[in-house]
Write a protein that binds this DNA or RNA. Structure first.
Lengths: 150, 150
DNA sequence: CCACTAATGCAACAGTGTTGCATTTGAAGG
DNA sequence: CCTTCAAATGCAACACTGTTGCATTAGTGG
């Protein structure tokens, strides 16, 4: 019974990992599962506190760093830095939907808000430059944090 | 002799600090001098290795952090995070010239290039949101780093 | 010149990320 | 099914960045 359910969500992550040409391990599957299920990029600390899924032992701190690195290396995850200087990771696929709109980062609470507006077209680049990613970030205070200020 | 030269560059930083309403100390003057002279935002580590100017002792690590915090608090310096997750500081005035154009960050060498193009106008924000800063960053490979790739 | 607060220096600590090395495990092949 | 081997894991220890507490020093205003 419990075996059958394992072939619903897990297997997709396993499949992605296998397709990427690296070993399929419990750690990688669990981490990629968590990243794909998350609505926002996760920090290492947040992932370390994962509920351990099906009674598995918690993932080792260092192993988690290496699992994340391997997922980034094979293109399944993306690595970015948040405003506090901490690395955050997201599943590669989920990022595609975020590429289409603008982010507002609150300097008060650190929250990230997705705005409806599309990012403007990138300007012309110098010869030889290759564009990989466009980031249009607005900084400021969100409605909650700005309420107290005059 | 050596005293007279101190009234050339230093005094402008001193003046700025005095005008900001905080105490004028050697540490703050030296740090603000360094920030104003730098062409790029400086990290804490880079500033700790400052040549110690006029034979002064090197600044204490913790004091440097507090000096930077105080300069940020009174609006004379700006604090940002680089791609490695390290805080970088810049003099407040020098940033104004950087606000007017787009940056290209090379994911290969970590270099930052200033493009001529102006950042596009920010989109409409939800009610209560207050905009402080607009960041339009492009990521990719610069001419040097992209040359090797097919 | 004095007094008082802010700033400094030192020590110790916390969080984040890395390295080395022995052990375990996934995947391939007999 | 068993063997084999590289890759992945777990553990310990470390490096770097940033912070906190507290005693001492040094600006600033009177």
């Amino acid at each position: 019974m419990a075996r059958a359910t394992a072939t619903t969500e897990d297997s997709l992550s396993s499949e992605l990992i296998r397709a990427a040409g690296v070993k399929v391990t419990r750690g990688r599957v669990r981490v990629l599962d968590a990243l794909r299920a998350a609505r926002q990029p996760l920090s290492h600390a947040e992932m370390e506190a994962l509920p351990a899924g099906a009674g598995d032992a918690a993932i080792d701190r260092v192993t988690l760093y290496r699992v994340l690195d391997s997922l980034v290396a094979c293109g399944l995850a993306l690595k970015a830095v948040d405003t506090r200087g901490v690395f955050r990771f997201s599943a590669a696929g989920s990022q595609r939907q975020h590429a289409k709109h603008v982010h507002f980062r609150c300097t008060g609470c650190g929250g990230v808000f997705c705005l409806k507006a599309e990012p403007p077209p990138p300007p012309r680049l110098p010869r030889g430059f290759r564009l990989q990613q466009v980031e249009f970030d607005l900084r400021g205070l969100c409605a909650g944090c700005g309420a107290g200020t005059s």
